[in-house]
Every structure is written in structure tokens, then in C-alpha cells.
Design a protein around this nucleic acid. Structure first.
Lengths: 120, 120
DNA sequence: GATTTATATAAATATTATTTTATATAAATT
DNA sequence: AATTTATATAAAATAATATTTATATAAATC
């Protein structure tokens, strides 16, 4: 970039990187299906496998990704592991998403015609 | 899957696949940054390159992905191409996201304790 | 304590997406 | 018409991710 040019505020911002981190986690069919399933209540891994029609290690793997992202949590009861959504994390995801991609951010009369600075 | 077992409503649903299609498009740092930048108004490709500090073909490529997804549109003026957000598409994205991942979908007292069907 | 059941983890493989490099197009300017 | 400027596209190279296969752990039951 040429010297002196300032990057727009929204660029490189933490917020974008944080939203990106979350989107990367949820932008997967199986993980999206798991999240959707868990909205209805906690589920053990074997139920998740069955509902999604995926193998056990695959279910476990995706659950691990969701867990590491803080979106779900586990409760162990005997041999079973029950997974459920972490409400605070879903809330935060909602907020981040809307703060960056909410329609409310579009000014009235969008888009106004602009001219590239290079035009003579 | 064993015969007779019914898949939960939310599984395989069109809605999930449609949200997935959109998430795949926006789950990329550069595309997210482009969208963020366009919220402020239409921008020509050269401005986008500069702000994101990426090469011209890379900017063009990501813009093509966003365009194919219907999230942005182009207006040509001379040699310049001005990109802007498609309001209706952003609106739809907002709606889809909230319909599937909105916190409001979590029932009060979530998560209730469940038992796996296999428990004796 | 040996076996079974539910789940996790690691390694190997396959798939998909991103970035780079090279080239093409299209409008404007000389 | 030749050249320059802004943008697009295609091919090649890289990188990231998902899936499968194999194995480990941990609790429960026989």
C-alpha cells in the first residue's frame, strides 16, 4: 500500500477476525446440522450420529470442533456424553453477526454513487 | 440408519442447505472484509484491492464469488466497476441466520436433561 | 477381570478452497 | 491504431479441511 493511505476502520479489526473464526466453525453442513439438532435439547453422541447419518468418529470430530469454539458443552453421565448448546456463545454469535452484517447498518438510500479517486 | 427411525425435522432441510451455501461464501476473511467495506458505500475494484492489501486478481476472484452468491452487484462506469451490496440479499441472509441460529429459538430452561433411548 | 458399549483421538487419505501467475478483455487516451 | 488502465478469467500451485480407517480410553456389565 502506498504510504499515507489509511485503511478503512472496519479492516483488520478484531471484530471481523472474531466473526470469521466463528463462521469458519459453523460453515459446515454437519456442524450446522448438529447445532440445529441441539437447539431442541441435549443429545448424546449416538443420537447425533443416527440423526445425521454419519460415522461415530466423524460426529466426535465435529463435536470437538464445536466444543473448542465454545459453542457446545458436554455433560457426562455414565458411558454417555450429552452435548448441548452454550447459550452465551450463541448469543455472542448472534451479536457479532448482526454488528457486522446486520441490514440495519445499510444507510438509507444505499448505495450512493461514488467516484473512484483516480478519475480525472 | 435402521428402518422406521425418523430423522429430526431440521435435518436435511432446505433451509440448512441454503444457510450453509451462504455461510460458505462469507466464511472467508477477504470476502468478509469486502462486505464490511461495501456497507459504507459502493467501491471500485482498485479501492478494494488497496484497502484489503490484496492483489487485483484476488480481489476480482472474491468479488466474483460474492456476485455469484447474489450478495453484491456491479455498476460499470467507463473502465471502472463499482461494487455494492444487494440489500435484499443481506436481508435474506440476516433472516436465514436468525431463523436457524437465533438465540430466541432456545427454550426457557435450556438444556433440559435428556436420557439416551438406549439406557436401560 | 474379561468383555461390551459409548466416545475420543491420531494417522492416512481425499476433497475443496485459496492464492499466485499468466493472460485476456474492454474502455479510454494518446 | 497503438498504448495504457481497470478489470476479468483460466491454469497452476498451495494450503486448508473433511472424511475415513485404525486404535485408544473409560465406564459398565457379565
Amino acid at each position: 500500500m502506498s504510504a499515507g493511505k489509511k485503511l478503512a476502520e472496519c479492516m483488520n479489526k478484531d471484530e471481523i477476525l472474531r466473526l470469521y473464526g466463528m463462521l469458519r466453525v459453523i460453515a459446515d453442513v454437519n456442524r450446522l446440522r448438529i447445532l440445529c439438532l441441539l437447539f431442541k435439547g441435549e443429545k448424546c453422541v449416538c443420537d447425533i450420529e443416527e440423526q445425521l447419518e454419519i460415522s461415530q468418529p466423524l460426529a466426535s470430530h465435529h463435536l470437538a470442533v464445536l466444543r473448542e469454539a465454545g459453542l457446545v458443552e458436554v455433560r457426562r453421565e455414565g458411558t454417555w456424553c450429552y452435548y448441548s448448546l452454550v447459550k452465551a456463545a450463541i448469543e455472542e454469535l448472534n451479536d457479532m453477526f448482526m454488528q457486522i452484517l446486520g441490514v440495519h447498518r445499510l444507510p438509507a438510500g444505499y448505495p450512493a454513487r461514488e467516484k473512484c479517486g483516480k478519475t480525472t
